[in-house]
Design a protein around this nucleic acid. Structure first.
Lengths: 178, 178
DNA sequence: AAATGAATGTAGCACTCGCTACAAGGGCTT
DNA sequence: AAGCCCTTGTAGCGAGTGCTACATTCATTT
């Protein structure tokens, strides 16, 4: 078995472990155990921990975008409010929680200037703003500004959920819709 | 010198170190060095690391609220847009960056259900929403909903800054104001 | 003066961390 | 069959972790 196929067998299990436990305190030995191998092998195939995490995040990001499009097939919404409701409903769904938790891990390190994660987080947000723009009504007068506005709202709501204040997120959604 | 005054001498230096390096990977020996003492003494006076961090966060929270009221003295804004502009300007200010970084540390652990930090984060957000409500124009028809809406917007913008996408935050602000 | 108790330095324990040296297995070519 | 290289297991290194046992200093109390 060559190196590439070995990695691709490990990837789903590695990703599941990272999604459950985060990447901040991630250590090789339990991670390897979760994939049915040893830290020795992970280092051998990925080079070092940093590269392993980079590959892992790339894999998870791809997995996430697929899940998103499956859950919410592309196509414009009927209004800005409808678009916000759909996107917020998806991003705040409990099924998204592992991704959200990982997202805050990445964000915390990006905020401290950890360059690899800063690039990752910027790329993820850039992808999201484009995704929301593509879902706006086709006749929206300011798709760019509106997409930014909606993303900021959605991510703010996700933060409120994580902070244990979902009522604040609900109230914000109601204030925008009403 | 009794234990209380010993702690209060350490506190500013401990807080400065925590604000600079975060609390996620915080270890006692460098922290003690920053305060001019030893890990041995920190444990002796605080009991254990968990209690030390709890005390530290309480100290920093008090410090932050004082800084906020100094920077933006209380009193209602002239409009919702003015309120958002003022609050966002304050929270996105580079001077707030250490606090923001620490905030994302807390949030990441709260999102994973670490109960101490979950309570802390909920309390901080509850304080903020009340603070914003007190700054809204006195005749606002829906102070509660509007305060929630503005907090979600501001925190979303702070997140975009941390994620390396300040343009998205700016665009969202413009979209709300315009 | 003797005794008590709080405060602090020194040294270390038991553990985990990322990573590596070494050797052995196993399939390949020559 | 001989040599070779990719892969893997075993064991361990050096550093760092929170925390503690022990001994000592020093001020206060009796």
């Amino acid at each position: 078995m060559d190196s590439a196929s070995q990695k691709s067998e490990w990837m789903p299990k590695l990703a599941a472990h990272a999604l459950e436990h985060g990447i901040t305190g991630l250590s090789l030995r339990p991670l390897a155990r979760a994939a049915g191998t040893s830290d020795r092998m992970l280092i051998y195939h990925f080079g070092n921990k940093e590269q392993l995490i980079a590959d892992l995040l790339a894999f998870i990001a791809a997995d996430l975008t697929q899940n998103l499009t499956t859950a919410l097939p592309p196509g414009p919404s009927t209004s800005r409010v409808a678009c916000l409701t759909e996107v917020a409903g998806l991003m705040r769904n409990p099924a998204m929680r592992p991704y959200t938790q990982l997202w805050f891990d990445i964000l915390a390190e990006a905020a401290r200037g950890q360059s690899a994660h800063a690039q990752t987080s910027a790329a993820i947000m850039a992808g999201f703003v484009g995704w929301i723009r593509s879902r706006l009504p086709a006749d929206d007068p300011d798709p760019e500004g509106c997409a930014a506005h909606l993303l900021v709202l959605v991510e703010g709501m996700v933060m409120m959920d994580a902070a244990g204040q979902p009522e604040v997120a609900d109230a914000a959604l109601a204030a925008y819709s009403g």
